[in-house]
Simulated assay, not measured.
Amino acid sequence: MVTIAVDAMGGDLGPRVAFRACRALMKNDPDVEVILPLEESLHAAARKILGKYQPRTRLVSCGEHVRMDDTPRKALKERSDSSMSVCLALHASGEADGVLSIGNTGALLVLARKHLGALHGVDRPALATQLPTKGRPLLMMDLGANICMTSEQLLQLGFLAAAWYRAGGNEQPRVALLNIGTEPGKGTDTIKAAGALFDDQLGSLYAGFREGDRLFDGDLDAVICDGYSGNITLKTTEGLIEWLLDMMGSELRSSLALRWFYPLWKATMRRIDRQVSPARHGGAMLLGIAGNVAKTHGKSDERSFRYALEYMVRQLRTRDYQSMEAEFLKITG
């Protein structure tokens, strides 16, 4: 049985989105249970929505939640009884195998470090997720946890990416650095210095610099960048995909001739949606924390939240932070 502590508070669409997503998850997977820390006023709504899945649902009382406009400092000092903090404490105590939060990213980072700590040798834990490509999925990190990073901290992310793959059975992942060009002299001083460190310490795992227009070629396993560049790249990609899917659907629906082939192109659109829709890739892991913590978009709807929960369950069943830490120590030792 996999137990997930879910921080349902702080999202744009309210906690009921998370309740319905948890219900869908438990309907499809009988080996999952959920712990929901909630303010007392929400317990009745949670019980009503979760219905027959209450035997696998545990509601825990908390006094408040982290606001989206809370600073990390405020969350650390004033939100010790928040739903986010309680979730992380449940994971630290072993009552939950992992945590999924829809809340404030900065707060999640500092509270995770408070309750769980960071892996030895990691200065800045980072957000990471796998993106669909022409070939194999691409692990991209950082996605917004750290706006500025040194070359040494970027190297730590390279080690983390390699360790994450090795913990899952891939002994030779190809890791690249995001840059504005592939030549050694391109990029900021930080990126050029990071490239030299990667080449020296990652050896055959390092695949060099990679430009943005070649991210989805499918020949890489991971790409490393600071959180500023990663967040912009991710959100630009998501926005472009959403626009392309909408445009394709609109063009197909507006054509009288194509309406005759509705069953065929509808099935094709569904296949494309399953492969590239941002809603299906909204869960991001917080790698470098001594625990299993993931984040989903604050704007997540029921569908996006459910996919993030399913992603979290898959991660817990295929690798955990202990195995990743062991691989990290082998690489850096």
Rank of each mutant, 00 (worst) to 15 (best):
Met248Phe: 09
Ala290Arg: 11
Ser80Ile: 05
Leu138Cys: 03
Glu302Thr: 13
Val34Glu: 07
Val32Thr: 12
Gly249Ser: 14
Gly169Glu: 08
Ile241Arg: 11
Pro125Trp: 03
Pro72Arg: 04
Arg259Thr: 00
Leu109Phe: 09
Ile180Ser: 03
Leu157Ile: 12
Leu256Ile: 00
Thr129His: 04
Asp226Ile: 03
Ala290Trp: 00
Asp301Gln: 04
His65Trp: 14
Val6Ile: 11
Gly230Pro: 10
Lys77Asn: 09
Ala118Asn: 06
Leu38Ala: 06
Asn28Tyr: 03
His120Ile: 00
Ala24Tyr: 14
Leu25Gly: 14
His297Gln: 05
Arg317Asp: 06
Gly98Met: 08
Asn104Thr: 08
Leu111Asp: 09
Asp7Trp: 07
Tyr321Ala: 12
Gly195Ile: 00
Ala126Ser: 15
Gly187Ser: 04
Leu119Ala: 02
Ala46Lys: 07
Arg47Thr: 14
Asn28Gln: 14
Gly282Cys: 04
Ala294Asp: 07
Gly103Tyr: 10
Leu329His: 02
Arg174Lys: 15
Thr190Leu: 07
Leu109Asn: 03
Arg73Met: 05
Arg73Pro: 00
Pro15His: 10
Ala284Lys: 05
His120Trp: 00
Leu59Tyr: 14
Cys225Val: 12
Ala89Ser: 15
Tyr311Trp: 05
Val17Lys: 04
Gln201Gly: 07
Ile102Thr: 08
Asn170Thr: 14
Glu238Asn: 12
Val99Met: 01
Asn170Ser: 09
Leu215Ser: 10
Asp142Met: 08
Pro30Ala: 14
Gly288Val: 02
His43Asp: 14
Gly212Phe: 08
Asp217Thr: 00
Leu139Gln: 01
Met26Arg: 13
Ala128Tyr: 03
Arg20Ile: 14
Gly103Cys: 09
Lys186Val: 00
Asp320Ser: 12
Thr318Met: 09
Glu95Pro: 03
Met141Pro: 02
Gly11His: 04
Asp221Gly: 03
Asp97Ala: 09
Arg253Phe: 00
Leu245Phe: 09
Pro30Glu: 13
Ala45Gly: 13
Leu329Phe: 01
